[in-house]
Design a protein around this nucleic acid. Structure first.
Lengths: 210, 210
DNA sequence: TAGATTGTTAATCGATTAACAATC
DNA sequence: TAGATTGTTAATCGATTAACAATC
């Protein structure tokens, strides 16, 4: 049923999800590929191709039902399930992720942070504990986390990924500026902030030339 | 000289930059497209195409000079210049960006943060001031910033972008989970963290199915 | 010179756009 | 039924890979 959905489409699905939620909030029940394309900056043709790559959810002469389409997309992406996370590295970035309210609202719950700095460990609370990184394997046995977030110095990233893998973690959200090596049964999504800033730098330069 | 460099190549340039820096640190002076491809997970053919899209920096029978190639890439991306930034929103994410040591090391300097919360403003220091958002236009006159970082609630993002544009800012690094509207002479790079987490969720689901 | 490896052209592959018949 | 809009096929476009002549 699900079939193969191309990477290009997958990268757009969160934006579909976001725009359909906005439409829902505006009380709009139905939308055509033309209108949705205008809002999202995509061609109607691409919208129809995208949606049809995972199933025909539209109705000819009418369009798509906002709520129904969003439900399908959420299911395809696995967003109708809850995901538990642990964050390794309780620096400012780790704390920012741990405290971002948008994630639990979308079903992503941070269970604990880990660090090697006693001062950071003391910052932990009952609902958001910070454990010593030495306890990683031990704590993971009870936490039932499925996602490991790497928010630590780049030198420690690869080793920590290996430890997480051995503890059964199969999904990594990496904020360290390194390209990690990982087994084929692991999923890794990188947030290389410096890379993005460099792309912005290039685009600025490009505009000045015009 | 620079010619047109495709978006697909631009997105890879920061990774080239990163790997070439690592090679430099390892004291490696020269590398072939074959070896570099192995390290970066790209085909040698793609590496040669990429590099040749902005100029022939290799030598037949020999390969590429690491230091020279990196210098060229840095120049193309505008990384041989300094860039001043202001961050709007002094929450945890804004603070994390302001304090990340990797950015100034790469020539990106945070001049100031802005917020509407008096408690956040009091957190400012002499080197890293936090001003009231009302003072944005006023302060920008003296700060000579070229990049505006949006690390504030989504409701305020579009309005703040408009204000930054009117104050002469032409580059935006956006951390708010919204799709912004902006004039064609503005450059915007988005970091939609929730989108990336959703992609990770999909990839996890995909692996379980296999 | 012989060997290695680039620069570049051609072939392939995949993604996007256009067109239109199917159908609500 | 007529009008609108999808689903889907075909055409186009761009990016990646393969092949090989040029040359260090």
């Amino acid at each position: 049923m699900a079939g193969y959905v191309s990477d290009a489409v997958i990268r757009r699905l969160p934006a579909y999800n976001r725009h359909l939620r906005e439409l829902e909030e505006e009380g709009i029940l139905q939308i055509s590929s033309q209108e949705l394309g205008d809002r999202m900056g995509l061609t109607p043709s691409q919208i129809r191709q995208d949606i049809n790559s995972f199933g025909g959810f539209g109705r000819q002469g009418y369009g798509y039902q906002v709520k129904e389409l969003r439900q399908h997309i959420r299911h395809i992406m696995g967003l109708d399930q809850e995901h538990r996370m642990v964050i390794i590295g309780a620096g400012r970035m780790g704390q920012a992720i741990a405290n971002y309210t948008g994630f639990p609202r979308q079903g992503f719950f941070t269970e604990a942070l880990f660090d090697i700095d006693p001062a950071k460990i003391r910052m932990g609370t009952a609902e958001m504990p910070v454990y010593h990184a030495d306890e990683l394997e031990e704590r993971l046995k009870e936490l039932h986390a499925v996602i490991g977030v790497l928010a630590l110095p780049p030198e420690a990233a690869q080793d920590t990924l290996d430890r997480l893998y051995r503890s059964g973690i199969r999904a990594i959200w990496n904020f360290s500026p390194v390209d990690l090596h990982y087994p084929p049964d692991m999923a890794v999504v990188n947030v290389h902030l410096s890379d993005l800033l460099q792309i912005l730098s290039y685009q600025m330069k490009r505009q000045q030339e015009e």
